[in-house]
Amino acid sequence: MIAVPASAAGDGRPAEERGAAGRPSLWNIANVLTMMRLLLVPVFVLLMFADGGYDPAWRSLAWAAFAIAMITDLFDGELARRRDIVTDFGKIADPIADKAIMGAALLSLSLLGDLPWWVTVVILARELGITALRFWVLRHGVIPASRGGKLKTLTQGIAVGMYILVLTGPLATMRWWLMAAAVVLTVGTGLDYIRQAVVLRRAGLSAAEAERDRER
């Protein structure tokens, strides 16, 4: 039986997702979803502020754009890992897209007076701070996403989505409680990530010191 090269036989990925030498193409489905999410950010902002920013119809369209962006966030990373099409572009662009759409939503809501500024500041400071922390300890290891972090993201998305819509009555009260839960999860998981980063860095420094001692 004649052996067929893996690149010719296929590796489970569609041909358009493979570039030169079998490497993942930039234009794979995961990266396309990420780029679409980035493009939705200015569209979302325009819809939020259309007609003064308080028209229920425009706000519903803004919610639809936000919901699409959040849904694609659930799939692009998973698709990249499952199809083995992870690229350097995706590693950089995916977290940027995540922060961009959430940041745009929080800032828009605060500018329109729908969400207290302190909530926006707390959430954005946590998100940017933990991202910087991950890069700071990257040479010692990767801080994995926790279940609490995933629950935080889900709660944030639902709460912010409800604030984007023009709601009254019990639903307006419900979104307040959801946002309160999101803030608690944001702070709590942020503190846990800081703890993990400190432990990871100490372990990395200890390992490096032990390696130097062996080389002496």
Rank of each mutant, 00 (worst) to 15 (best):
R201E: 14
L167M: 12
T131Q: 04
W136Q: 13
V198R: 12
P95M: 11
V41T: 13
G53W: 00
A197Y: 11
D114P: 00
T87K: 07
A3R: 15
I71P: 06
F49H: 08
G204H: 09
V184I: 12
K91R: 14
M162T: 06
A50V: 02
L112I: 05
A197E: 07
V121S: 01
M174L: 15
M35T: 12
V187S: 07
L47T: 00
V32P: 02
Q196V: 07
L26N: 08
D94A: 11
V43N: 03
L205T: 10
A21P: 05
A67Y: 04
L165S: 07
V184R: 02
T186S: 05
K99A: 12
A181R: 01
V187C: 00
N31A: 11
D76W: 05
M36H: 07
P24V: 09
G90Q: 10
L138D: 14
Y193L: 08
R202I: 02
D98Q: 13
L106E: 09
W177P: 03
D114M: 14
D11H: 05
V45F: 01
I130Q: 05
M162G: 08
A159C: 08
A207K: 12
L151C: 07
W58L: 05
L178W: 10
M35D: 07
M174Y: 09
P170W: 14
N28W: 02
S108R: 02
G77N: 11
G188K: 00
G12N: 08
I68N: 04
L47M: 11
G113I: 03
T153G: 05
Y54A: 15
L33Q: 08
R212M: 10
W117Q: 06
L178F: 10
R37D: 02
P42V: 06
Y163T: 09
L167N: 06
V137N: 02
P14G: 09
M48D: 00
A64H: 00
M35C: 15
R126H: 03
L109N: 03
M35Q: 11
V43E: 01
D76L: 12
R37G: 09
A69I: 00
D114A: 13
L191D: 01
R82P: 04
I71V: 15
R13S: 10
A67S: 10
F75G: 08
R147A: 15
L47R: 00
E17M: 15
M1W: 13
R202S: 11
F75K: 10
L112S: 03
S60G: 14
T131R: 07
L151G: 07
A80E: 06
I143N: 06
L39I: 09
F49P: 00
M70I: 14
G103T: 01
L191S: 03
L47A: 12
T131P: 03
